[in-house]
Design a binder for these strands. Structure first.
Length: 419
RNA sequence: CGGGGAGUGGCGCAGUUUGGUAGCGCGCGCGGUUUGGGACCGCGAGGUCGCAGGUUCAAAUCCUGUCUCCCCGACCA
């Protein structure tokens, strides 16, 4: 992609009414456009980051046997009445609307009911289980107050998966398999080291704990207690002597930290399947309840979380796996030879499968370097009179200040293998 | 939903106390000089001052209502 054709621009100032650092940076760099409080549109660079994160999640969900679907945003009231979640007293952040004929509808804030309902024509026998179904799409929640930029919106992108098991034992197997997949997701996103599986409240219909995935960060709104050796944590909301004893965790090993909840998995028992008449027939011909689990990852929240987590005083710093481009190619001056050299490098890298944002604008050096930093693309390559003269390219990592001069082979090497 | 703050060209702001027909910086367009860390000069385009009503000869400015945004709290992936 050429910068001259990218319709977004960076800006020097940020909207005065945006105080969340993640939204400030993403707006300043042109990754997102704020439509209204808690509602952000993704511009090309932001969309690429969002898609890159989604692709990693999708890959890991598929790897454990997840089957991707797409549920609807418009949902019938009747479905939610069956599980007693339609009443505003039960769920207070619904967006509700009406058909032209007056029939009430809900705008999807979660999809347990729709997913269960959509499985009814297909799941009848023990042979049809176990099963993982997931989707990646927007959720709509009428929060009283949106805040923290992309971390808490009224419309946000979520990956939600649901597991369906024959037995409690089978459910636990499925549950643990997802927990392991989640750790791989966060590892690939570049936040593996600071993300902990965290014991949390299991909700009102189960005695069990749920598991959150919390990324330690000063921008976090949650408080957790981390056991670094065991690589686990416990949420402050259940931090009592009694639960510590039950979990076999020693108070002395715990350190208090601020964190962002990036994922949450919990057992649903058969609450939704029973309520919506989804049963299976076992080997003996008896009808049995289906044990469900629910597994969420806040995809758009991760965009904001990662943006803010890694940013420095110059701007964004994307982990390699999710950056919108791998290389930011700067053409410093605009004489014919430099243009020819930079154009050729651009074509060359692209045909090698390396994604390049090519700053071919007729702008001054300072502006290009500042934009390179602000946009946070991992590798910066400069073509200038100096480099052309020596027949090399200048390479620099966003995370480091050292620059190196490299020939084409060496450059390609560092861009693909990091060496 | 309770408390606080704010709405003036695309963005950041001044002007409101003391009514007199809207200004600055950035950005944008044109011309020129520049070119390794956000250059400079000249010319230019762009705003019914959130919206609605009212007071007045005259309203960005005063009054009433209303919408929106932000912060703190409660709630929440």
């Amino acid at each position: 992609m050429r910068s001259s054709q990218l319709f977004t621009k960076t800006r020097k100032t940020i909207p005065a009414d945006e105080t969340a650092r993640n939204a400030q940076l993403l707006i300043k760099a042109g990754y997102v456009h704020k439509m209204m409080a808690g509602v952000y549109a993704y511009m090309p660079l932001g969309k690429r980051v969002l898609d890159n994160i989604a692709a990693i999640i999708r890959d890991e969900m598929n790897a454990i046997g997840g089957q991707e679907v797409q549920m609807t945003a418009l949902q019938p009231k009747e479905l939610w009445e069956k599980t007693d979640r339609w009443d505003d007293k039960k769920v207070d952040n619904w967006f509700k609307t009406r058909l032209a004929n007056g029939v009430e509808l809900g705008v999807g804030l979660s999809h347990e009911e729709p997913v269960v309902d959509s499985l009814r024509p297909f799941v009848d026998s023990y042979r049809d289980l176990p099963l993982y179904v997931y989707q990646i799409q927007p959720k709509f929640r009428n929060e009283l107050r949106a805040k923290s930029g992309l971390l808490r919106g009224r419309e946000f992108i979520m990956k939600d998966m649901y597991s369906f098991a024959r037995t409690q034992e089978q459910h636990m197997e499925l549950y643990e398999r997802v927990a392991a997949a989640y750790l791989r997701v966060f590892e690939r996103l570049g936040i593996g080291e600071s993300t902990y599986r965290t014991y949390a409240d299991g909700g009102y219909f189960t005695e069990k704990f749920s598991d959150e995935f919390q990324t330690v960060s000063p921008i976090g709104e949650d408080t957790i207690y981390v056991d670094e050796n065991k690589r686990i944590a416990i949420n402050k909301e259940i931090y009592t002597d009694e639960t510590l004893a039950k979990l076999g965790i020693s108070k002395g090993d715990l350190v208090e930290k601020r964190s962002v909840e990036v994922g949450n998995i919990f057992p649903l028992e058969s609450k939704y399947s029973d309520a919506l008449d989804l049963y299976y027939t076992d080997e003996t011909g008896e009808q049995q309840s289906i044990i469900m689990g629910c597994y969420g990852i806040g995809v758009s929240r991760l965009v904001g979380m990662i943006a803010e987590h890694f940013a420095d005083e110059h701007g964004l710093v994307w982990p390699e796996n999710i950056a919108p481009f791998r290389v930011y190619l700067i053409r410093l001056e605009s004489n014919e030879q430099i243009i020819r050299t930079a154009d050729a490098l651009y074509e060359n890298l692209q045909s090698a499968g390396i994604e390049v944002l090519y700053d071919d604008r007729d702008a001054r050096p300072g502006e290009k370097f500042a934009d390179a930093d602000l946009l946070g693309i991992p590798h910066r390559v400069v073509v200038s009179a100096k480099t052309v003269e020596q027949g090399v390219f200048e390479h620099k990592l966003r995370t480091e200040s050292a620059k190196s001069m490299r020939n084409m082979e060496s450059l390609k090497n560092v861009l693909t293998t990091g060496a």
